[in-house]
């Protein structure tokens, strides 16, 4: 099953390489990865989506902890979280289809951020399911190009990592 894990790491050169190299050599497959700085400039936060049984996830977490630069690993499996992805989708928008696409975009509370005579570029944020659903609907018009960010996650409520 899919797990979303947050990894707090020292904000140092090479940390991303160390983490990615660990996943590669232990045979763990990364679905998505997002990295950014946090409120503390010395610490970066990685959100990694990875698929595997619980035993594999436990091994991933233990192996991550062996890296000197890893401070904390959180598996968000059983926890209430806010998770978001951003996608940019360039979709065919011929004259006859434009109205319908705009309606769909509005239902998803997405935005059309660029328009040409034959296409729209749509920006959508939300959970992975929501982004998947919008992509599913837009497929019928023909998606010309698409890019999704990795998932980012924070715990709900006052709890912090």
């Amino acid at each position: 099953m899919k797990h979303t894990i947050s990894v707090l790491v020292n904000n140092r050169p090479g940390v991303l390489a160390r983490t990615a190299s660990l996943f590669a050599r232990r045979g763990f497959n990364i679905d998505s990865l997002a990295v950014s700085t946090t409120q503390d400039p010395d610490i970066s936060r990685m959100t990694i989506v990875v698929e595997g049984p619980d035993a594999v996830l436990e091994q991933i977490s233990k192996q991550l902890y062996k890296l000197m630069d890893v401070i904390k690993v959180l598996d968000h499996q059983d926890e209430a979280v806010i998770n978001r992805e951003l996608a940019l989708i360039k979709v065919n928008a011929e004259a006859g289809a434009r109205g319908e696409i705009m309606q769909t975009v509005s239902i998803f509370r997405a935005n059309i951020v660029d328009v040409s005579d034959r296409s729209f570029t749509i920006e959508v944020t939300g959970s992975a399911d929501k982004v998947d659903a919008l992509i599913g609907l837009l497929n019928q018009y023909g998606i010309r190009e698409m890019m999704r960010t990795g998932r980012i996650v924070l715990s709900r409520g006052g709890r912090t990592a």
Binding site: P13, G14, A17, R18, S21, L22, R25, K66, L67, M68
Partner: peptide
């Protein structure tokens, strides 16, 4: 440091 990433406990440049 890149080459020895997977074969050191830690490394430094």
């Amino acid at each position: 440091t890149g080459i020895t990433l997977p074969i050191t406990k830690h490394n430094y440049l």
